[in-house]
């Protein structure tokens, strides 16, 4: 058959279409964000259905359609959902990852390999229950913002670039600020909080583990505020993320 094409992708979003069909939004490796139709998947007899749920990492074959392309084959690469839905904290963090990825990518076409790898890595770590879901989410958000070109400055002044560490943090200014550039009303997060943000951005998990857990809540707050400042509409899932760390986690 002519024009069939294949790609690997993460299922970002699933919408009902008509009686039994769904529109699936993928973040693909080579075609960027892609929307396609899955026919008949809501019937429980469908072999496709389970493979086209949010968080699924799949190898998909598409057939070009008039408006949206049609999904003709699906193979599971990683069923991340299995390890995610059995813990509500992991589930809410994973939803925020999908929504952020969806919002940071434009419709169709443009490849976003780095973001695709970030999302896949974050979901893999969440599904494996490797760390506090809240930390994994914040690490993803910091790196996703870096991908978008507006990660908060944490090691230098956001305005003049003077090397830090600086104590003032302003979302409007773009991160930490030196005493000269500090806008009125800046926050004054602890040194631990800023070290944590920097470690999350650079994936220095050894450093992250050394920082007192008290800094995590403040870091999450700054990450969320910075993200929301740059997105036009508020994320729906972020306020619903369960942030409390498990008791046995410290």
């Amino acid at each position: 058959m002519a024009n069939l094409y294949r790609d690997t992708g993460i299922v970002l979003r699933v919408q009902k279409l008509g009686e039994a069909d769904r529109i699936i939004t993928f973040l693909t490796q080579r075609h960027g964000k892609l929307r396609a139709v899955a026919k008949g998947v809501r019937r429980t007899s469908s072999k496709f259905g389970a493979r086209l749920e949010p968080f699924c990492h799949v190898d998909v074959q598409f057939h070009p359609g008039r408006s949206l392309d049609i999904i003709t084959q699906v193979q599971t690469l990683d069923a991340f959902g299995v390890g995610i839905v059995n813990d509500y904290q992991r589930y809410t963090a994973a939803c925020a990852i999908l929504e952020t990825a969806d919002r940071l990518t434009a419709e169709e076409g443009e490849p976003v390999v780095r973001l695709y790898l970030l999302v896949t890595g974050a979901l893999r770590a969440l599904a494996a229950a490797e760390r506090d879901p809240s930390l994994l989410l914040d690490a993803f958000l910091m790196r996703a913002m870096a991908f978008a070109g507006w990660a908060p400055a944490v090691n230098e002044c956001a305005k003049c670039g003077t090397p830090g560490p600086h104590r003032a943090f302003s979302v409007q200014a773009g991160g930490t600020c030196c005493p000269n550039c500090r806008p009125p009303g800046s926050a004054s997060p602890s040194a631990d909080t800023l070290t944590l943000l920097s470690a999350l951005l650079h994936g220095q998990w050894g450093v992250v583990d050394e920082i007192p857990h008290l800094a995590r809540r403040d870091a999450s707050g700054l990450v969320a505020a910075h993200l929301q400042w740059h997105l036009e509409r508020q994320l729906r899932s972020l306020p619903l993320v369960e942030r409390k760390a498990k008791l046995d986690d410290g």
Binding site: A20, V41, R42, R43, T44, S45, S46, F48, G49, A50, R51, L52, E53
Partner: peptide
């Protein structure tokens, strides 16, 4: 008996 990904309303009575 209930495959993942479906809607409950589409499951046949037997299943």
């Amino acid at each position: 008996g209930l495959p993942m990904g479906g809607d409950l309303e589409f499951a046949d009575e037997l299943t």
